[in-house]
Simulated scan of single mutants.
Amino acid sequence: MKDVSGVLGAVRARSFGAWRGGRYLLGTLLAATVTLFAAPLLCVPTLAQPWAERQRQRAGALLGRPVEQRRRATRRNLLGLLTQVATGLPAGGLALICLGNLLLAPFIVAFWWAFDTAPWLPVISVPLTGWGTALWLGLVNVVLLAALCVIVLPPLARLHARCCLAVLAPSPAEQLVERVSELTRTRTDVLQAHSAELRRIERDLHDGTQARLVAIAMRLAVVGQRLPGDPDDPDDPNGAAALVRQAQAETEEAMTELRSVIRTIYPPVLADQGLAGALTTLATRAGVPTRIDVGPLGAVPAAVEAVAYFAVTEALANVARHSRATEASVLVTRDGELLRARITDDGAGGADAVRGSGLDGMRRRAAALDGTMGISSPPGGPTVITVELPCA
């Protein structure tokens, strides 16, 4: 019983494969015929692209391969039209002959008596003089034609589908462009998610953890006032009042550290005033007179804002510490999807990221967002630092 069921399963599988292959090839014959007669229209790029994609989807479905949408490739689409006619007509014609004759043989057997002359059969043909000859010879023809369909049509269909996918496949250059576009889209999604996460962390630390530390410090101060004894008494350093005072001091140190961490994650001034307002506030605290010029920026991801802010902060700190400059300027502009920050000073020059002046950290921050940083600082100045950050 297992052998019989296995044989039946194999027969069904091969029959289904022949049916799928034959259906694909008949569709290919129809597509090739339409392509031949409608070639002037299908040579138009806006029509050639969807037509070529339709053929790719059919080929991918037969082979069980996922086929992703391509960008427009006019030359490959035209080559695909030519290949469709050159290979689709003979392959589809062969499938039509095999399947047509397979359907024709039983019809001839059933109606052999209606013909004036003895009809012919597709594979083995002799005059049909009676029902016996018609039945056994018709059965032989059907078996032979079915075997021919099972043997020929599936591999022929797969061969044509592979040829179609190979001809219409994106070139290495097109694949690179698509990959870059995909990475750009995913980077945009990551930046947006990162921006939301930065704002959430800053808000949670500022409004949650920091507020709780402030409340603890206030309670410790109240407790210290109510406890007997002098917390500054050197003879009783382990007294309750001294321990409370120590705990209060450590809590305040923790708040100071937390504020520093919050500023390095996402400065609150960015959330409150945006990048333009934050840079203006930063200029008022710079060690040298600084002019801020911020153009229209549009929507900028929080991660990009933070990196730009930290870059300007570090650059102005270097100006104050090392450059001996009398003035500095910061120009922030938006060019398409690129945010550009340009920091200039009239100092002595000679800035070098290799010497650990904080410039290397700026470069790493920019590179983390696929950005760049350039330095022009000849001896005698001026020094110009340009940071470019993609916003998408």
Rank of each mutant, 00 (worst) to 15 (best):
C43A: 11
A348S: 14
A110Q: 12
G347K: 08
A39Q: 13
A341H: 02
A221L: 07
A39D: 05
N318A: 09
R23Y: 02
H160L: 15
G295P: 02
G274F: 11
A302R: 09
E68N: 01
V190N: 10
D360S: 14
I265N: 12
D352W: 05
L94E: 06
G361T: 11
N141Y: 05
P119F: 06
N101D: 14
L81Y: 07
R54C: 07
T186W: 11
I108C: 04
E252W: 05
A196C: 01
T281F: 02
Q248A: 15
G130M: 05
V300M: 07
L205N: 05
L47R: 08
A254F: 02
G224V: 05
G6N: 13
V300D: 03
A328C: 13
E305L: 04
R162C: 12
G239I: 08
A320Q: 06
A86C: 13
G27M: 10
G298N: 08
L29R: 02
E250K: 12
I262Y: 03
L153S: 08
V312P: 01
L135D: 03
C164T: 15
M255K: 13
V214Y: 09
P66Q: 12
V304M: 03
I262M: 14
A348K: 13
L29G: 14
G208I: 07
R199Y: 00
G64N: 09
K2Q: 13
L42P: 05
L338G: 00
A254T: 11
V319R: 01
G27V: 01
P228D: 08
R291E: 14
I385M: 15
V150E: 12
L102T: 11
D360C: 03
S181R: 15
L168C: 04
E68P: 00
A18K: 04
V222G: 00
R340K: 10
R285E: 15
A86G: 08
T386N: 02
A311T: 09
R203T: 15
V307R: 04
R259M: 10
A161T: 04
